[in-house]
């Protein structure tokens, strides 16, 4: 079968785009694309990806070069999608179905995608953050307050995401709101230990993901991608500190303590 190179280009860049959108590391995106190209019999294909962009270039047997560039919008991490796309990519490499069928399978995954509803997500925030408050040495009441602050962060993130705010702003807002909530709960006499409440709630914002992925990228030799993600992680860490400091400072000013 002689592959139609423009359709092949469309298929592989769509696959790479979807993988990266669900939070795959750079080396996984590049490797998946080059395996797909090999599976479909394109000898001369090159791919280059950095966190905001994927470039795929092909040369057809007649010697015509073709390139597609996909710009990445800002995205989060969705493990469910990531696993599904990864499985599909393996399947495509093994079976090499016709392009239309492959594209249909890709959009099938998007159609059957399931996310947890907002209440479940808030519950997850409650569980995660509350448990981290206990983990950082809080009492049972602190755990409860930490969970509530975590829910506040969850609500704040959902709201600011809907407004289309950037990551830095979202983090500052979330950190500030949760610190306010923690201090209010402590002032109301429910929480005893504002430190562990705030730390527990902040765990919902810490850049663990960005940092781990950055390390894995650097390890795989993608220095540009790794360094830009590591910078992002540092920036988020700074944003957490700034947001919390903002709230604590304001309270300090208002109460005048």
């Amino acid at each position: 079968m002689k592959p139609d190179y423009s359709q092949l280009l469309e298929l592989v860049s769509e696959m790479g785009f979807r993988l990266m959108l669900s939070g795959a590391e750079i080396y996984r995106v590049e490797e998946s694309i080059s395996r797909l190209l090999q599976a479909y019999g394109a000898e001369r294909g090159e791919v280059f990806a950095i966190p905001n962009c994927i470039i795929v270039s092909l040369t057809s047997p007649q010697g015509e070069p073709m390139t597609q560039i996909r710009r990445m919008p800002s995205h989060g991490t969705d493990i469910y999608l990531l696993e599904r796309y990864n499985d599909l990519c393996r399947h495509l490499c093994r079976e090499t179905p016709p392009f239309q069928e492959a594209l249909a399978q890709i959009s099938d995954i998007e159609r059957t995608h399931k996310v947890y509803s907002l209440p479940v997500q808030l519950l997850a925030h409650f569980l995660g953050c509350g448990m981290f408050s206990l983990f950082y040495g809080g009492s049972v009441w602190d755990g409860l307050c930490g969970g509530l602050c975590g829910m506040v962060i969850g609500l704040c993130l959902a709201l600011t995401s809907r407004l289309g705010a950037n990551l830095f702003f979202k983090t500052i807002a979330g950190a500030a709101v949760s610190a306010f909530a923690a201090l209010a709960l402590t002032a109301a006499g429910i929480g005893q230990n504002p430190d562990s409440i705030i730390i527990g709630a902040l765990m919902a914002l810490v850049p663990g993901i960005a940092f781990t992925n950055a390390m894995r990228d650097i390890m795989a030799g993608d220095m540009v991608a790794g360094i830009s993600k590591a910078a992002e992680a540092l920036l988020i860490g700074a944003a957490i500190a700034l947001g919390t400091a903002l709230a604590l400072g304001l309270i300090h000013l208002l109460i005048g303590g």
């Binding site: 991490t77 969705d78 493990i79 469910y80 999608l81 996310v115 947890y116 479940v120 997500q121 519950l123 997850a124 925030h125 409650f126 569980l127 995660g128 953050c129 448990m131 765990m203 919902a204 993901i209």
Partner: peptide, 8 residues
């Protein structure tokens, strides 16, 4: 477990 829900 809570955070694994958040990453879908």
């Amino acid at each position: 477990i809570g955070f694994s829900l958040l990453f879908n």
